[in-house]
């Protein structure tokens, strides 16, 4: 009987990302950093914060996908990452549900 392993070892990828990709990602991150600074000096009204946050998220996603190789990793890795952000989201959402409604009038 052939012994099949159940420990999901086949999930480990030895993918080699090329140097060109790494430099391209670095260039993209530099452009996005410049964009962050430029955007901060513009007046988009109440949109400044969401824009800054969006750019930072894009930068983080790029780092995660390419520098941290999530794009070539098992789906489990992305699931772990998304899962932890979901739980952090619960912390934000439910705690803000208190602060934002604290001074609402009583019905």
């Amino acid at each position: 009987m052939s012994k099949k392993k159940t420990y999901e070892a086949e999930d480990f990828s030895h993918h080699v990302t090329s140097m060109g990709t790494y430099f391209a990602i670095f260039a993209a991150l530099m452009v996005l950093t410049a964009l962050t600074v430029w955007v901060a000096f513009q007046d988009f009204g109440s949109l400044n914060v969401p824009i800054a946050f969006a750019i930072a998220t894009v930068k983080a996603t790029v780092v995660v996908l390419f520098f941290m190789h999530v794009i070539h990793s098992p789906k489990m890795t992305a699931a772990i990452l998304v899962g932890s952000i979901v739980f952090l989201g619960i912390l934000f959402l439910l705690t803000f549900s208190d602060y934002l409604s604290r001074f609402w009038p009583m019905a």
Binding site: S97, D98, Y99, S101, F103, W104
Partner: peptide
């Protein structure tokens, strides 16, 4: 805490 939040 907020009453509404407490209900949730």
């Amino acid at each position: 805490i907020s009453v509404y939040s407490a209900m949730i």
